[in-house]
Design a protein around this nucleic acid. Structure first.
Lengths: 253, 253
DNA sequence: TACTATTGTGTTCAAAATACACCATATTAT
DNA sequence: ATAATATGGTGTATTTTGAACACAATAGTA
């Protein structure tokens, strides 16, 4: 929560640089060792959590804005973000209006204008990534999907919609490139799918189907040093992966 | 194209009523007897065609705005519109800026501000629908997809993206409810799929699969009066149809 | 050296998609 | 009337894909 002084400065700056009425919110899913989590920010002086979001510069392309915002707010860079929906209920920012109504009149408070927010989502390996909060935020935290804090505004809805979209996407697009390390084992990749879908899959059928997509390369050398039998290492075939993103994995008709 | 006087009036009105920086454009696919077409508008005094689009009221929900805009500009009402993507290249409205740069300075011309446009698409039966142009438009026309006029701004991109989305959607969602008459024959429905996909399908396999989805009811009475054997009539089972929209037709994993 | 946990690689059975053939019916040409 | 024809309904064999399941291989450990 802004103090009055901070708010006035923020609004002055925003009016100069940002496009009014449009914001971006990012749902960053993090995965590691069977854990699926979401990146959230806690605002200073406010007992509530938000998805990392922000505003667009007046002449900035949308995708660039999404990447910049995510980087500024969490330090995450070069993350593949996917646009999935615009949220624009006229009342979605009512909590902010209520919060600030006695501090600055609505007419002067750019921050509580109506905003449509463009939802983006991403998948990352949350140990390869080091979220660092920006000035407005007290803390970045990875929350387990089953144990979420109270998300402000419509951010719970945005999160749920992102998850639904991700699960649907799993059926016709490859995932994992931004999420798995360069080399990974088949059981590791399977764990990702199982975690997103919240469902057990058959080892052997998973492998056959996955290989059938033709987006994986198998290394000569299996992983060594672990306990038990040494598994093969796989990596994504970038060209085929990109192609599968465009074309879809298996046509229906 | 606006005259200077019209433009000034339009901008005055827009500033009062519309949300700045956001517009909506609709891709209305029309289908009839094997023809797939797109609804386009020709502006007065301008040799160019547009998708029907417009602006949001300051406190209007997005979906409501999309429906209102489509109705105002074409007369089409109660059409199921599906949001599919936001287009926001900073240069997308450059043609409009160039067009009006000598008529009204950009600082006074709300119309040439930067706009992000939210893309919606719909499918309708174009003989059940009677598009009537609004004041700004000289003409509404259904164009064949293979014979499109020059679409202004980024509207060709929006159309192409909508078509790609529609084709992809065909694989995991039912379509046709807004498009087919209440009762229709299986060959008629097949023709729709073939037209959208631009590909021939097997009659018998199509029917089996379609019925397998469980979203169709067969009437007792076959259609009469046509030449040749009387075909059965089908209608959509609304409840199952809606459910299939939400759940998808066949899960992958 | 046997035990255990994990991974690799089938094989079988069922379901679904594909390819293809035949019958039914309403109009039209003779 | 009757045959020709165009269109629509239904069935069947084959192939492909998906689901369920079992056994062999390997590295660490008791």
């Amino acid at each position: 929560m802004f103090t009055k002084q901070e708010l006035i400065e923020f609004c002055d700056n925003a009016r100069k640089n940002y496009l009014d009425h449009i914001s971006i919110d990012c749902v960053v899913f993090g995965f590691h060792e069977g854990q699926l989590r979401v990146l959230t920010l806690k605002m200073k002086n406010e007992e509530s959590w938000y998805l990392p979001g922000g505003f667009m510069l007046k002449e900035e392309p949308i995708e660039m804005a999404a990447n910049r915002i995510l980087k500024e707010r969490t330090g995450l860079d070069e993350i593949f973000l996917q646009q999935f929906q615009v949220f624009g209920d006229p009342n979605r920012s009512r909590p902010h209006r209520d919060m600030y109504k006695d501090i600055l009149p609505a007419s002067e408070n750019w921050f509580t204008n109506r905003f449509l927010t463009i939802g983006y989502y991403a998948l990352v390996d949350f140990v390869n990534v080091n979220p660092t909060p920006d000035n407005h935020s007290e803390n970045c935290a990875w929350y387990d999907l089953t144990d979420l804090p109270d998300l402000k505004l419509d951010h719970a809805l945005i999160l749920k919609t992102a998850l639904d979209t991700l699960r649907l996407q799993l059926n016709y697009q490859p995932i994992g490139y931004n999420l798995m390390p360069k080399e990974f084992t088949m059981p590791e990749l399977q764990k990702l799918y199982e975690t997103i879908l919240d469902k057990k899959l058959d080892r052997r059928n998973f492998q056959r189907r996955m290989l059938g997509f033709g987006i994986l390369n198998r290394s000569e050398e299996p992983r060594k040093g672990g306990a038990h039998k040494a598994p093969y290492l796989y990596s994504f075939d970038l060209e085929n992966y990109q192609n599968a993103l465009k074309e879809g994995l298996k046509g229906g008709w």
